[in-house]
């Protein structure tokens, strides 16, 4: 692909990312200013604006949940992926890979529900479910990414007298980074969605107004929560897309 064909879509996607980020921040901070609009659209609803908690607080709580769970998932997941690709742990690789594949067929909402009997209601069970579920794509992509490093490259590094640590840090991880980040992207996006459902088990997230609206038959609440969480997911995904592209060494970039 020629350079011009590549740079144009990536430019427009950067513009899109900036535009949507600004919109997201504006809505998080200034949703209350839209109260007249919602009152005009839904004259029968009173109140037409979710006011039990500020949207800023809900967004921060949502982000904290996703951030903490993702940090744990990524560190544990990459460590597990590294372990099963080293000589000492290679025996565990088939089982761990299968487990990651089967685990991802489990519906996230069902995983969330199954954690409740063990961990109770609130922040903790949601965190546990997010960590467990978020682990799987990270492990899978770490193993896959390290597997794409050509054996000649490793051979050459060994021939140059690099130690196992040096090979890992200077060759394997940099070359596998794009695939690992793709796994983190999947994990974080799923976690943003599952955290939303977490409000049904008592975690405070952007799903709280959605659930309150669905239970209380209040459409404005539903829309306010859903728009924010949808935007949050899209902005995060676009940001990860850029991050991934940064690690693709001279490849012709992603397909779309």
């Amino acid at each position: 692909m020629s350079v011009s064909a590549l740079s144009r879509p990536s430019f427009s996607r950067r513009a899109l990312l900036i535009l949507l980020s600004v919109l997201l921040i504006a809505l998080v901070v200034g949703m209350e200013q839209l109260a007249p609009l919602f009152r005009a659209l839904f004259p029968d609803q009173d109140p037409a604006m979710y006011e039990r908690e500020s949207f800023l607080n809900l967004t921060l709580a949502h982000l904290a949940l996703v951030l903490v769970s993702s940090l744990i998932s990524v560190s544990v997941g990459v460590a597990a992926g590294l372990f099963v690709t080293r000589p000492a742990g290679r025996e565990f690789e088939p089982l761990v890979s299968t487990l990651a594949a089967i685990g991802q067929t489990f519906p996230p909402a069902a995983v969330l529900a199954i954690v409740v009997p063990v961990a109770g209601f609130g922040f903790i069970p949601t965190l546990v479910a997010l960590v467990l579920y978020g682990l799987l794509p990270v492990v899978q992509n770490t193993v896959a990414g390290l597997g794409t490093v050509p054996s000649q490259t490793l051979e050459a590094a060994r021939g140059n007298g690099m130690s196992a640590w040096q090979i890992l840090w200077r060759i394997e991880l940099p070359l596998a980074m794009r695939v690992i980040i793709a796994g983190v992207r999947v994990s974080v996006i799923i976690n943003i969605g599952t955290a939303t459902i977490g409000s049904t088990v008592g975690a405070k997230t952007l799903g709280t107004p959605i659930i309150a609206g669905l239970v209380g038959n209040n459409l404005p609440y539903v829309i306010q929560g859903a728009i924010l969480v949808g935007l949050l997911a899209i902005v995060t995904d676009l940001a990860f897309e850029r991050l991934e592209r940064r690690f693709s060494f001279g490849e012709s970039g992603a397909m779309a």
């Binding site: 959605i210 459409l219 829309i223 997911a233």
Partner: peptide
């Protein structure tokens, strides 16, 4: 067509399920 098509479909895939369900309700 590919670029536009895949990015639009990826948007749908990215939006959390409960938000997409909820946004269709209105």
């Amino acid at each position: 067509l590919q670029g536009t098509l895949f990015s639009v479909l990826n948007f749908f895939q990215t939006i959390p399920s409960i938000a997409l369900f909820a946004l269709l309700v209105a």
